[in-house]
């Protein structure tokens, strides 16, 4: 028996919106720890790791550890039946090949029961080593999204350079080039507007903008984004989900000439 209840149902809608353009199908891992997922995009360039801890749910019951294979696109279609202020309950029984979503309006005057077919998905978990990063940038997620969107209209790649001067996002395309530098700004009264740069070593890495732009679909989940960089390693772009967990995206860099 697996059952979880999330009063803030819009959170699940936003989580699925944040991964649906990157991942087609995925196994959701259910355990007493929570509801989690690790999945790569079809070209194995990016990986997304989602964690929603059991403590963050109003009700969470998971009698045994198991995985539910779901099409993310189909899940997004099912979640379209939920209003933003609905309470969402997800239920699955042992040995069945369906999952049930129940959407309740806050005043309990409308209840939707949606059943979705599960899938058999063959997927391996990847071991992500705990790493010390050369540089960690924390900045407003809306700012990061806007920078990625602006640079996307000029070029296909973004080079992220962290130095004493700050963090620079640069691109080059047929029509020209652009670079945007953000300096550390921790003096703001609003912590969500701060830009904080922790640098052990200067770092410069190039990434495909089409993936980074997809990651910014998670912007509504968190006011801040954390970008962790090390030379010749995948970047980690993390959006924390308050009191629940996180969505982390890993993207392999472009290498060599």
């Amino acid at each position: 028996m697996f059952e979880l209840r999330l009063v803030q149902g819009s959170l699940l809608k936003r989580v699925i919106d944040a991964i649906k353009d990157l991942v087609n199908d995925a196994n959701f891992d259910c355990s007493s720890t929570g509801f989690s997922l690790q999945a790569m995009d079809s070209s194995h360039v990016a990986l997304v790791a989602l964690l929603l801890r059991s403590e963050g749910f109003e009700h969470f019951r998971c009698d045994r550890t198991f995985s539910m294979g779901m099409s993310i696109a189909n899940m997004a279609k099912m979640l379209k039946c939920a209003s933003n202020d609905d309470i969402i309950t997800i239920k699955a029984d042992d040995g069945t090949d369906t999952v049930t979503f129940m959407f309740e309006s806050p005043s309990q005057d409308k209840i939707s029961d949606i059943e979705m077919k599960l899938m058999d998905i063959d997927s391996d978990h990847l071991g992500i080593p705990d790493a010390e990063y050369d540089a960690i940038v924390r900045m407003p997620s809306s700012e990061f999204s806007s920078i990625c969107s602006s640079l996307s209209s000029i070029g296909d790649t973004v080079t992220i350079t962290v130095s004493k001067q700050g963090v620079t996002f640069s691109t080059k395309g047929d029509i020209g080039s652009g670079n945007i530098t953000c300096r550390q700004n921790s003096s703001t009264e609003k912590p969500e507007e701060a830009t904080i740069i922790e640098m052990k070593e200067p770092v410069c890495l190039t990434f495909a903008l089409k993936y980074i732009t997809t990651f910014t679909k998670a912007t509504s989940l968190s006011s801040q984004v954390t970008i962790s960089l090390s030379s010749d390693m995948p970047v980690v772009v993390e959006y924390k989900i308050a009191e629940m967990g996180h969505v982390r995206y890993y993207l392999a860099p472009k290498i060599g000439e």
Binding site: H44, V45, A46, L47, L126, P234, Y250, L251, A252, I255
Partner: peptide, 14 residues
């Protein structure tokens, strides 16, 4: 042009 890396060359299957 630089080549796109693959995530599987950094993180191994468990």
């Amino acid at each position: 042009d630089p080549k796109q890396g693959n995530i599987l060359s950094f993180f191994k299957r468990k």
